[in-house]
Design a protein around this nucleic acid. Structure first.
Lengths: 129, 129
DNA sequence: TTACCTGTATTATGATTAATAATACAAATG
DNA sequence: CATTTGTATTATTAATCATAATACAGGTAA
């Protein structure tokens, strides 16, 4: 899976990496059970420190997206669903995002159109099989 | 307008404040042309430093949500729309958010329902007149 | 067993950011 | 002329980010 990091961004590297992996899972490019590279391997590929990757993996584990097995490494969880207050947080983020859109003058139709477009995009990203 | 800050949050105060104001604008509780409190006034009310409020106002100005007039203070912009690469950024954020939802097992219908709910909530928040 | 590769913990360092505090200043209002 | 606006400056404290160099426990495979 291709991962692009912006070293000039003010967004921390470990967060960028976390987001890229979540995007991979959400789009299906990373399927449940798929293994992730080892922290050293991925750090080498991306040209960053292994502890930074480790921080990302720890975060993804805490957030329930992956599970970590000694020796086997990190794998995408089969049931990423069970996070207690996820719905509340998610809705809060959506509220802020939509408020920003409304403040910019977006209409309900524009919301729906963008929504549909993103959904399509994510659904096409998956693998066949 | 009521503003609640969480001093224990890891989200910076100036960002929390920025988000609260954007929520105010998006929901219509703050209408175009409305004046915001002075930096010192708001800082006093919230029990934070005036320079922190100033940082928030500067950010909101840079992002096109408010305009700042010496002596008159800060006012909500009438045309918050004209920000060049806003649509791209907005879509990127929505993509990440929806990917997170998909990874959690959310369905298309759940997306739409939540979306409608948040839209309603924001539209009811506005003022009459 | 031995050698290797997992994630992880530790300690240190340098750079940046967040928040506060105490002033000070230009500009506009009353 | 006194007041209030946003803003700039300087300093300080605390926290975060990223790196580096190791080291360790625990599985795996030669």
């Amino acid at each position: 899976m291709r991962i692009a990091l912006d070293m000039t961004s003010e967004e921390p590297i470990y967060l960028q990496l976390r987001n890229e992996i979540v995007l991979g899972i959400g789009s299906g490019r990373l399927a449940a059970g798929d293994g992730l590279p080892s922290v050293r391997q991925l750090a080498d590929d991306l040209g960053i420190n292994a502890m930074t990757v480790n921080k990302t993996y720890g975060l993804l584990k805490d957030q329930g997206f992956i599970e970590i097995d000694r020796r086997q490494g990190a794998r995408v969880r089969v049931d990423s669903t069970q996070e207690p207050h996820f719905p509340t947080l998610w809705q809060k983020q959506l509220t802020l995002l939509m408020a920003e859109g409304l403040a910019r003058g977006m209409t309900r139709d524009e919301f729906l159109a963008t929504f549909e477009g993103v959904f399509e995009q994510l659904n096409q990203g998956g693998r066949i099989g």
